[in-house]
Structure formats: C-alpha cells, structure tokens
Write a protein that binds this DNA or RNA. Structure first.
Lengths: 144, 144
DNA sequence: GCTTGACCTGAAGCGCACTCCAGATTGTAG
DNA sequence: CTACAATCTGGAGTGCGCTTCAGGTCAAGC
C-alpha cells in the first residue's frame, strides 16, 4: 500500500489521513508561519512528525485550529487561549473552569455584538446627512 | 460676568461652554494622550487654545470624538479615519465619497456581527461538552 | 519667592500577534 | 550528480494604536 505508488501517494494524491503544512494552511486559512507560532505558543499540542521532521497534521488538528481561529477572531488573546489549552491538557477536573472561560468569552462576544449594533445605528444616522437632498450640514457633521 | 468670580469661574465651577483636557477625557472616556494623538494624526481639527496654550474643547468636539470612538471601536483604522476627516474638510463635494466610506464600513461591521454570531454558535456547541452529565470527551475536544 | 499641578511638545517605547529571514536538511526530478 | 522545492529552526523585524518620557511653561497657593 505504501510502496506501490510512491510518486502519486507521497506527493500528489493525498488520500492520506494527514496534511502537510502547506495543505493545512490552505485548508484552515491560517498561514504556515502562524501554525508554527501557535504550536510554539502552546495553542496546539506538538504536531506529529514524519521521519524527516516535517509536520503531519491530522484531521483533528484541522478542527482544533478552526476552533482556535474562531476564538481568536472574536478577540480571545493568545494568552487566554494558551490557558484554555493548558486546562484541556490537565484533564477533566478542569472542566468547570473551561466552561467558565467559555461563558465569559461568550458574554464578551455578545457585548461586542451589542456595541456594533449601536454603531450601525450611529452610522445609519450619519449616513442620512449624505443621502438627504439637503446638505445643510457642515463637514464634521455633528458640529452645530 | 467674567471678572466677578475669578476663582470659582476659571477653576472649579465649569459653567463654561468648553472643557479642559482632563474634563474632555473624563467626559469621552478617551485618555488625554489619545486625544492629543488623534489631533496630531488629523482625526480632529486643531482644538481651540486658551491664552496659555492649553486646549479648550468645545461641546462639538465631544460629539465628534464620540463618533470617532464609535468608528474606531468597530475596527476603522486611524488611516481610514484620517481620510474621512480630510474629506470632511474638503467641503460638500466629497459627500458621495464619505457616504461610500460609511457604507463600506457599515458592511464590514455587519459582516463582523455575522461572524461573531457564528462564533457564539460554536461556543455554545462546545459548552455542551462541559455542561452535559457525561464528560466522555477528551481535553482538546474535537479530537477523536 | 517657591512649590505644585495641569498642561505643553517631540520623540521614544511598548504590547500584541504575527511575519519574515538566514541558514540547514531532505527527498524527488531531470 | 545537481537542482529544486518544501520544510525545518531560532531569532529578528513589522505595523498598529496607543502610552510613556524628558524637559519646559504658566498660573495659583502657601
């Protein structure tokens, strides 16, 4: 199975259950450098290696990276993510803390959404100055 | 009116229609340093000055800073804000561009909200692992 | 007259999250 | 055999948005 189609197998057709760094990057949208950075920072457990030392990402890694990105994109810091990961590694006794951490973050995201919805209102309001037929309002708007 | 109660007038009771930097900061929640920084970066027109060179913020300035903060807090960069301000200073011929700018930003905020709502879903999903009676799921969750 | 406190200025520094670099290794292709 | 592409490593560099600093002015209080 492994020695029959050397070329296609190891290079092209990735029927494998692992991904190269490049594939991982393409698949998750996270740059190779950032993937390494996350690993170095303890945001992912050490990735499996091939004989030559190259990383071999598993499908589980893909999922985890996606979770990571989701949390990062919503403002969780590297520091907090590291903490969350660490808890995960320490077993299920830390579950309450992990739950609390997620709940806190969830709330932060909700707050952020609320704030942005407020902003939308203000933007809409300001846009009326420009869409209205009358442009009687001076440059820096709210003035006067 | 101005010479009768020198002490109270100039120092304590601010029945004035201007604010000192400290008051401005307290009022808008933006630090004095940041206010100066915004001015230097061209995000606000030069602030009026007292005889001694100290800034005197007007109530219009308060409103403008609030708009600024709203846009900043929703991810508009200093660069973009500067551009927006510049347009404002160039008169009403730039109104279409300012409108477009706001519309683009509005869309970005909407996208961001959508993304965060997605994140909430994922967080909720992950939280069920911890709230459920069974904790059959290993630390880094999605694995296996 | 001296001190204090609020403010001024230009410039340097900081924290975060990447991002890039130099130099080395390794496996396949021509 | 040589060339090339993908990857490796530790460490330095980058960009953004402030924040801090050093040194100075000025008005009021003791």
């Amino acid at each position: 199975m492994k020695k029959k189609k050397t070329k296609q197998e190891t290079r092209k057709t990735n029927t494998q259950n692992w991904l190269t760094p490049a594939q991982m990057s393409a698949c998750t949208g996270v740059s190779i450098d950032t993937l390494r950075y996350y690993e170095k920072e303890g945001l992912v457990q050490p990735i499996a290696r091939a004989a030559n030392g190259h990383r071999r990402y598993s499908k589980a890694d893909v999922l985890w990276i996606e979770v990571l990105r989701c949390l990062r994109d919503t403002g969780m810091t590297i520091e907090q993510l590291r903490h969350y990961c660490l808890l995960g590694e320490q077993g299920e006794t830390t579950e309450p803390e992990r739950l609390a951490l997620l709940q806190a973050h969830r709330q932060k995201v909700l707050d952020s959404i609320a704030k942005q919805q407020e902003a939308i209102k203000l933007i809409d309001h300001k846009m009326t100055y420009y869409t209205r037929t009358s442009h009687s309002v001076p440059p820096n708007a709210t003035k006067k």
